[in-house]
Structure formats: C-alpha cells, structure tokens
Amino acid sequence: MPETLAAARIGVVTFPGTLDDRDAARAVRLAGGEPVSLWHADGDLQGVDAVVLPGGFSYGDYLRAGAISRFAPAMDAIVDAAKGGMPVLGICNGFQVLTEAHLLPGSMIKNDHLHFVCREQVLSVENADTAWTNAYEQGQRITIPLKNQDGQFVADERTLDELEGEGRVAFRYQDGNPNGSRRDIAGITNARGNVVGLMPHPEHAVEAGFGPADATGPRAGTDGLGFFTSVLASLVRA
C-alpha cells in the first residue's frame, strides 16, 4: 500500500504571480505523494493523477482574481481532466481560478470590510466524502491559515440553496465570518467530489513547527495535511 501511495503524482501549477506553489508541493511530499511542477503555458499535464492550483496573485489579480489564468493552456487540459474525474484542488487564488473556469459555481469579491486578512482560521469540514476531505470526520473542526483580500464568496440564492441541498458546501467558517462570505461558506465541491476549492490554506499547516497554534503548542498545527493524504487515499481506491 505505501508503494502505491508514493507512486501517486500530484501536479502543482505555477501561473505568473503564483506564490504558494512551493508550499503546495511540499505538502504533497509530506503527505507521501510525488509533487510534479506544471507550468501554466504548457498544456501537457505529464500524466499526473491529480492537480493542485495553489494560491497567490496570478496576473496581479488584474481584470478579476483568477480571470486571466483561467485561459492558460494548462487550464484547458485541467478542465477536461476534471470533467473526467481527476481530483483538482483550488486553494485561494486557485479557488478563484476554478470559479472563473466554471468548474465550481459562485465567485469571490473583495472582503466586505475591504481589508487584507491574515489569520489562523477555524473551519468545519461539512463534507468529508470528497477526494480532498476523506481523511477528516464529518463536522470536524480544523485550523488552517487564511490570507486574502478577495475572499468573499458570493452566489445567487438558488445556487446557494443547491450547494446546501446537495451537500456541496465542503467547509464553513467557524467562530466568526472573516470576509462576509454567503452562509459562512469557506469552500465548496462539485457534485462528483473530485473538484474542491477553498479560500483558506491547508498547505501552510502540514508540518509541526511551521503551522498554526494548536492544543499541543504554538505552530504545532498540521490540520491541513489531511487534504493531501485524502487525495492519495482516493487515488488508491480509484
């Protein structure tokens, strides 16, 4: 079994202005997978088993956050692969890219208070049945960093009702809504559960000594690691 896990290759896409590709690759490695760097301008996904769209400010958030990256050659290949069931995780700017690419509904606008937020954020795992969340318990509280300015999730009421009704709200903000997101939504999934997007950053909470504070001490939190062990487990099962 560990051999199969180690063989899983997880692509991490770098766009111009991406910031967290190294941390995402490191998270994949710490979870036991093999990270593969993918370049936005290359439509060849190099046979990876899953893809992470990391955070940052691709194209300086010009036009709209994620709007220009959506048209990258790598994204055409990723949209096709995602429709075929390949696991795709969008973190922060990567989530914005997924909504612009119409792989996930809704959109992100500026935080309601207009400030950049950087803090350790408590979330509840509302759907522990996706490719990226199966290592968690339903309703589990996790703490991972949140850092953005355009983090307010919005969608029309019908879309929000659909997301709720179909169990597609993957994460909800707990202990206060940091940005005005509708219904405290921090992350969502597609119906199939292979495409997940969220604004907070699991890849920054994967190694003791470098994560958020938890009960065992400062910077000890590794609550984000489950995203990456989840996808490895889902690939083994597939």
Binding site: L63, R64, A67, F71, T99, E100, G106, S107, V154, A155
Partner: peptide, 8 residues
Amino acid sequence: TVLSNPVI
C-alpha cells in the same frame, strides 16, 4: 465571456 463574470 472575458471582460465580465456573469455571476457577479
């Protein structure tokens, strides 16, 4: 398709 996002 590009200059606006019809969601928002």
